[in-house]
Design a protein around this nucleic acid. Structure first.
Length: 616
DNA sequence: CTGTTCCTGCTTTAT
DNA sequence: GTATAAAGCAGGAACAGA
């Protein structure tokens, strides 16, 4: 039994480490002073809380509690106040906010392959460590102190472990990215990929003794704009999507160009200074699919850096990462380097195509995608010449109907010779259902039987769970289909499932409130919806009026569709009887139509359609 | 007045 | 504050026919 300053403390939480000790301080001031003492002592402080919240808060409280300024290890650079996102760092030592690092889209997407869905400590720990935060049912302010201290300690342990796991992968990655970008840790972890690449390129200019051009100097000299984007308001035309051949297909091989855009940038010598260069003798060196030419005298700085990164990754670091002669630790380190390089290789096109990038050059961005379009279109042409049917393709891929090994080799060789691009076999579908819709299909891998769903409504996170369930039931049946006979058999089972689920909507003891829940994120704050107010925003507004809880930009609101003028109700307020069955039947119908379309089943074909119509 | 078509805004995905 | 292409829903304006 521990006793301190009026708190009775029965026993440490059962998971509390035996060598750890809980210390109670007399006051917040005493606690903060002790925390500051420790912060001065350690060279690196790692936290997990966005917007420097921890440092901001401590700085703010220290002022309030009149702690001697000399004792405060925190330096606030810009802004003041805990809600103002003031920028903080340490007067001595380095502060790393892991949240900002993991939240970075390039880190989550390229370095961790989208392993975690949200950037919360719980989601990331779960995905990368297989561990979760301490689960609690009670509110934090209601927790007993022994539980609360374990909760806090567990958070700290997870944060530390996130930097140490897998031979310190994250820590190594941070140091590598700093070395590549020539940025200090504090800056690097807080900036996005555009700043990383900008800094890297400025360094390369200085190293060569080049003047760094101003944005206007590039844009005035090289105007571009030869082809408009198909979407209004976009800066330039993007990729080509092959119109799909609707229907059921068996044994479909997908071949794709490995890192298409970086390869194009390197092979076509694309850079702001080489595209539309002033040399008269370069004017004949036209870029395929564009009205532009590129330089034959010098290698462009974009092409050089992107090409160099791509080459050392593919030819040196990737093979090293799998070299059995090296120790586990060495391989893992090479793998980290390889992943760090991937961040820059994959991010380069997006940055070069961004109007905000200081070295933005429209003809470079256009050429990258136009050469991509040219490449995929030529590949389709070539495939047809050697009698391989192309069923679909998107940006850098072609879906080939049952090609022979020889045909595939022929196509690969042709691509290398004619386009300077590596076209490789990626995967084979034993079964592929295409509809008329682009970016929408269901395929089943030949080897692993993995069901690959792309684009379908049933996969989207804003689709209610009961529709997803109906869908997965349907897919279970499709899994074993390898030919048309089996398909006809599957068809009647599918029709049964569809009918069954329609009957269940709105009936008692079938689906729960959670099954009907729709999750939609708010891309703006409530007050910024001025043109139209979508249903999820109306639900959020109603919730704010009723309970005071306000959803912020970027947060996801959960609601159900209801009868009445608002048409939606936040899950916090909703009851099962509030739902509008009619709307949900329409949702299920349109979601299923997408896949039934591809399977060649029309909705009328489903027996009892007359009966179902009665529900509408 | 009523039902349909078209357009715009918004969200989410594919690459 | 890395890109464009494309889908689909919701809601309202425009339109057609009574």
């Amino acid at each position: 039994m521990l006793k301190r300053e009026g708190f009775t403390y029965n026993k440490p939480h059962k998971k509390f480490p035996s060598d750890a000790e809980i210390v109670f301080y007399k006051s917040e001031k005493e606690l903060l002073t002790e925390t500051f003492r420790l912060m001065w002592k350690y060279p690196i402080i790692i936290t997990f809380n966005g917007d420097n919240f921890d440092l901001n808060y401590m700085f703010h409280r220290a002022n309030k509690l009149k702690i001697n300024r000399d004792l405060n290890p925190i330096h606030v650079k810009r802004g003041f106040g805990i809600l103002s996102k003031a920028e903080c760092d340490l007067r001595k030592g380095i502060h790393i906010d892991l949240f900002t690092f993991f939240f970075n889209r390039s880190i989550s997407g390229y370095a961790f392959g989208g392993a975690y869905e949200s950037s919360s400590l719980n989601a990331i720990s779960d995905a990368l460590l297989g561990k979760e935060k301490y689960h609690h049912d009670e509110e934090i302010h209601e927790m007993e102190y022994n539980i609360l201290s374990w909760y806090n300690l567990k958070d700290s342990l997870l944060t530390l472990e996130l930097t140490k796991f897998n031979s310190s992968l994250v820590w190594n990655l941070i140091i590598l990215l700093c070395r590549i970008t020539k940025m200090p840790i504090h800056e690097m972890v807080r900036r996005q990929i555009s700043t990383w690449i900008q800094n890297l390129f400025y360094f390369e200019h200085r190293r060569r003794g080049f003047l760094i051009p101003r944005r206007a100097e590039i844009s005035e000299l090289k105007k571009g704009g030869f082809k408009k984007s198909v979407i209004e308001g976009k800066g330039f035309a993007g990729a080509y999507v092959v119109p799909p051949v609707p229907g059921i297909h068996y044994d479909v091989v997908v071949m794709d160009f490995s890192s298409l855009y970086p390869s194009i940038i390197k092979e076509s010598n694309l850079s702001y200074e080489t595209v539309l260069c002033p040399h008269p003798d370069c004017e004949d060196n036209l870029l395929k699919g564009t009205p532009y030419h590129t330089c034959t005298h010098k290698m462009g700085i974009f092409a050089y850096v992107v090409g160099f990164f791509r080459d050392i990754r593919v030819k040196y670091f990737k093979p090293k990462s799998g070299d059995k002669n090296l120790s586990e630790k060495q391989r893992s380190y090479y793998n980290t380097i390889q992943q760090a390089l991937k961040v820059f290789i994959n991010g380069s096109y997006g940055v070069f195509g961004s109007l905000n990038f200081p070295l933005f050059c429209l003809p470079v961005a256009e050429s990258t995608t136009a050469i991509g379009q040219y490449s995929i279109k030529q590949t389709i042409k070539k495939s047809e010449e050697i009698d391989v049917k192309v069923l679909y393709g998107d940006t850098d891929s072609v879906f080939l109907l049952n090609p022979t090994k020889t045909q595939m080799q022929k196509l690969s060789k042709w691509s290398k010779d004619e386009l300077d691009l590596d076209l490789e076999e990626e995967k084979t579908y034993q079964f592929l259902a295409l509809s008329e819709r682009k970016k929408n299909y269901v395929g089943i891998y030949k080897d692993t039987k993995y069901v690959d769903i792309k684009g379908l409504v049933a996969k989207k996170k804003n689709t209610p769970e009961f529709i997803k369930k109906t869908f997965s039931d349907l897919l279970e049946i499709l899994k074993n289909v390898t030919n048309n006979d089996e398909f006809s058999k599957a068809k009647s089972e599918i029709i049964e499932i569809v009918k069954e689920n329609f009957r269940k909507i709105g009936k008692a003891d079938t689906f729960s409130l959670e099954d009907y829940t729709i999750n939609i994120s708010m891309q703006k704050n409530l007050k910024d919806y001025t043109k139209v107010v979508p249903q999820h925003v109306r639900a959020a507004m109603e919730l704010k009026n009723a309970t005071g809880k306000e959803y912020q930009k970027g947060e996801t609101i959960s609601f159900v569709k209801t009868k009445g003028p608002i048409g939606a109700k936040a899950i916090e307020l909703a009851k099962l009887q509030d739902i509008d069955p009619k709307k949900y039947k329409e949702l299920l119908k349109s979601a299923l139509e997408q896949v039934l379309d591809a399977l060649g089943i029309s909705f009328d074909e489903i027996k009892g359609i007359k009966k179902m119509d009665a529900f509408f």
